[in-house]
Simulated scan of single mutants.
Amino acid sequence: MSKKLRTAVAAAAAAATMTASATAQETIPQDQPVRSVVLVHGAFADGSGWRGVYDILTARGYRVSIVQNPLTSLADDVAATDRILERQEGPSILVGHSYGGTVITEAGINPKVAALVYVSALAPDVGETTGDQFADIPAPPEFIIETGEDGFGFVNLEEFKTGFAGDTTDADAAFLRDSQVPINMEIFGTPVTHAAWKEKPSWAVIATEDKAIDPRLLRETAERIGAVPVEVPASHVVFLTRPGEVADVIDTAARASGGS
């Protein structure tokens, strides 16, 4: 993204943030160009975790769609995202959590995408892989992935809550643990061929208590891609435990974007 565009995004975000408390419960204006939101989950999860964010944004008047990534390959996940984007009637905010950040980085070049929101997410550059993101700042020791003989990985059961969902209840963490969607670990070695954040304005929700992706990496990533950073005191599943703050960032991005 050019310096001029980054300046414009920052100015728009600042203006939107000043009125966030006043507009948090308001419906979106009828003449607002961006009225659609597409949510993309990450590894070891499915789209149902977005329910809280979905409820808040739909109440404000947004049309919200949720991608169900198969987690079988990066190409499959990008295709699943494009399939949902093509169903949108106008420009959309594309949102990705964790590995979903890699997916929106690739899929975000779709002309229907007006802006990107990274939620405790990764954002590789062209030629980089998801795994490359951890070269200098590895995942915290609490986050343990176990890979089966078929090449698909799960988060370790004993450390699941600590590493993945530290601020959920024990019951919710147990459900997330036992309903994991395994990911083909080859995905983490697949380089991206496009970096949509170079052209699309971006926001980044940084979960300050994240034990799956080090918050230092989240901050460095936000700075590298020129995203507007918003820090939230939450675990890796910030979209689940702090849906209001995440919805506000998405709302801000939509209000600040003029469409594609």
Rank of each mutant, 00 (worst) to 15 (best):
D82Y: 10
T72N: 14
A79Q: 05
V78Y: 03
D82Q: 12
E89L: 14
V95C: 00
A79Y: 03
A75E: 15
H97F: 10
L85K: 00
Q88R: 08
V67Q: 03
N69K: 02
V95W: 03
L74N: 01
A80Q: 00
R87Y: 01
E86M: 12
I84D: 11
L71A: 07
P91M: 11
P91T: 09
Q88P: 02
A80S: 07
R83S: 13
I84Q: 01
P91E: 12
H97C: 04
D82A: 01
V78L: 03
I66G: 01
S92G: 13
I93W: 09
T72Q: 07
L71W: 12
P70W: 02
I93D: 08
T81Y: 05
S92R: 06
P70T: 08
Q68H: 14
Q68D: 15
L71N: 14
N69I: 03
D82T: 07
H97E: 13
S92Q: 01
Q68Y: 10
A80E: 02
R83I: 02
S73R: 05
V67K: 00
L71R: 09
V67E: 11
I84H: 03
D76L: 01
I66R: 08
L85Y: 01
T81W: 13
V95H: 12
E86F: 10
T81C: 10
V67H: 07
G90P: 08
V95E: 07
L94E: 06
L85Q: 08
L71Y: 09
T72K: 09
G96I: 13
D76P: 12
S73C: 13
I84M: 06
A79N: 10
D77V: 02
I66Y: 06
N69V: 07
Q88H: 11
D77P: 09
S73H: 13
D82I: 06
R87I: 00
G96R: 02
G90T: 07
I66F: 02
Q88G: 04
G96K: 05
E89N: 14
L74V: 08
V95R: 09
A79P: 03
V95K: 02
G90H: 09
